[in-house]
Design a protein around this nucleic acid. Structure first.
Lengths: 385, 385
DNA sequence: TTGTTATGTTCCCATCGAGAACAAAATCAG
DNA sequence: CTGATTTTGTTCTCGATGGGAACATAACAA
């Protein structure tokens, strides 16, 4: 496991550091600022940028003068530089987007699908339509755990152990895949509400609840890359059996399925999202029963967050999906029950609970991030020159 | 946040890599093997080792010839090299040990204490008695969470927000502190049952249960460095109120306190450990009620482990304290209830549940590790030359 | 117009690790 | 006992890297 050794590796390393700084920056910065940021000399910065410009990875544009001093250049993505494609594969739709250095994604195409793995061929064709020389890596977000990075398991589509290696063949560009909830969390950590946190958590609340632990801007993946099933811990004392095969899961009390069940429906089939939206509408309009349902959902959410905060000590927790509405309408309920679940000695410093700012674009943004993580690696950059 | 830039940093980096390899190795290795291991040339290895020998960080001793080829030298700790001291501060005793490069710890002194923070002065004196020129860093393990690394909270000693910065003053050597359960886990990850795992968990079961998530050989610490209170999640549906201020904690059903409660005692005062030992003895002798108590404890343990495995996907889980006996006597119960708590699709690949191999020396060994982590840093090594 | 300030550019230099060639010290084959 | 083989140590040269100093350049300010 060699990390770095030769002087050439040192150069590559500094090039990657520079590219990563550009990618992660909120605002573009100048070459001189880059030198200060990386702690290198102006001469070295000039050499690095020159090589990256020649490799069509960075581009320099004149910066408007901002005070005294010789005018300098802004470091921006190269117009002919590599791009990452990102795919968000949902229950019955898919979206393809393109993202350059810096992360800004533009949607290219989207479509519906028939809930069979044939959608992968459809996506492959869309990628071929839009992908040119500049396409470097494809990041794909799907729901459901992906064991060891290739065995996909989406229960609500009836996909059981779908073999991704068979569906994503040699005619695909270099492709990296991950779970949508985890990628939504990664997006928040890199470009959203969790930016800058050392330890944080993100939860996506849809039919049920899934999430990820974010450490230093990266998502914890686990030994088989199926970490994040926080919704399948018994955090709320439910006596019910969950579809996952366990009894008492947190997800039984949080999310659209819990709302469906409360109003007498059978979870797991179809119209849960519409019902959830309707409950939200009615609760906002003052309907007592809908309000009570929301209270229960928010209370169960908060109770679980408190328990998880005891164990993992996050600085902040962001929510997406239904969670955004729950925060908007029932923040006090969530926070009160979170505090109740927190050990007494930590109640004066509870985790910040916040709505994600990347929103519904989370999985797509996260997929672009993991694709760019491949590009911004020493191996890839060295290959490119 | 500069990671590395100059060529001098490159050299330091490789020196640290070499020292870390020696520290982490199970068996000593030769200079030629080191070159292969780090992916550097024999000439470079010779230069690195020479400098480290002059800095009294490494020592070369003739290796007994093992086949053909010119005889070489074994890389071993320098006899005058730096040592780390490690302290394990327990409820009413403390132990001081010394650990050299490679981790082998030898006990220096131990004593009892009066359960007041005055024990820190006592420890300071013992350190001064044994510490000479070679003492570089002190690692200290205590029970209880240590918020932000300096505010100690040990409920069963009645220490509430004890300020470590006041107790560990400028007359101490460079000191690093952490929680005993976390350090026990770190010890397993570095030198015990979890060695080589990418994602693993460790739990120490005493009066209650505490643990840590281990990622790539390091312990997850959390935003306020108080992560690891897994025992205070409601994983077993207990209706009771816990001393921590929360209702339903896992710890209410696992550990010595749970046994005390089951046999009519009041947890939190004294003799829980003796009772636990007696229950173990009686259960092993065939006593039905003691056996049932053990069953319940093991079942609750397994149930929680399964839930946590869903969320964090560890490759292996090691246990210390009472957990060792529980594995020895009730492995099937633990594993069965763990499987029951695992989502169905992961039951064919459950986490390996194993007794820790570092044993009672876990906190001390872990304390030595965090002390050596300071020594094996580029900053420290560069300072030493 | 002239001084100030921030940046770009060009040079030289110390250091680092790679690689090749050779030397040294053991084992193995006869 | 001798010579071939194997593995490692040692020495030397070389290209590349980043630091630093000196100078050039282009804006602003007085």
């Amino acid at each position: 496991m060699p990390q770095t050794m030769t002087s050439a590796d040192l150069r590559t390393r500094n090039q990657v550091r520079l590219l990563r700084a550009v990618h992660d920056a909120v605002e573009p910065f100048t070459r001189a600022e880059a030198a200060r940021l990386l702690g290198i000399g102006r001469n070295t910065a000039a050499a690095l940028v020159g090589e990256l410009e020649r490799a069509r990875l960075l581009h320099e544009v004149p910066a408007e003068p901002g005070g005294r001093g010789r005018p300098t250049t802004l470091l921006v993505p190269h117009p002919e530089g590599p791009v990452a494609f990102a795919v968000d594969l949902r229950e019955d739709t898919w979206t393809l987007a393109s993202a350059g250095l810096g992360g800004g994604a533009t949607e290219l195409e989207s479509g519906e699908h028939d809930r069979t793995p044939a959608v992968f061929a459809e996506i492959r064709e869309a990628v071929a339509r839009h992908g040119g020389e500049r396409l470097a890596v494809l990041g794909l977000a799907t729901s459901g755990p992906i064991r060891d990075g290739h065995r996909l398991h989406v229960s609500h589509l009836g996909w059981d152990e779908v073999e991704l290696d068979d569906l994503i063949g040699a005619d695909w560009p270099r492709t990296v895949v991950d779970n949508d909830a985890r990628l939504a969390g990664l997006a928040e950590a890199r470009r959203g509400a969790l930016r800058g946190t050392g330890t944080a958590m993100h939860f996506h609340i849809d039919f049920d609840i899934g999430g990820t632990l974010l450490l230093g801007g990266d998502a914890q993946r686990g030994a088989h890359r199926i970490a994040g099933e926080f919704g399948h811990m018994p955090l709320t004392g439910s006596p019910l059996a969950c579809m996952c095969g366990v009894r008492g899961c947190w997800s039984l009390d949080v999310g659209a399925n819990a709302l469906v069940r409360r109003f007498g429906g059978t979870p797991g089939h179809g119209a849960g999202r519409e019902l959830a939206q309707e409950v939200l509408r009615r609760a906002e309009a003052g309907d007592a029963e809908a309000g009570a349902a929301l209270d229960e959902n928010a209370a169960a959410l908060g109770r679980g967050l408190g328990a998880l905060a005891n164990a993992l000590d996050p600085e902040a927790i962001s929510l997406s999906g239904l969670g955004v509405e729950l925060i908007r309408l029932r923040r006090e309920v969530i926070e009160a029950h979170c505090a109740e679940g927190l050990m007494a000695f930590r109640r004066d410093e509870p985790p910040r609970i916040t709505a994600g700012t990347v929103g519904a674009a989370g999985p797509l943004t996260g997929a672009a991030e993991i694709a760019w993580d491949v590009i911004l690696s020493p191996e890839w950059v060295r290959e490119r020159l």
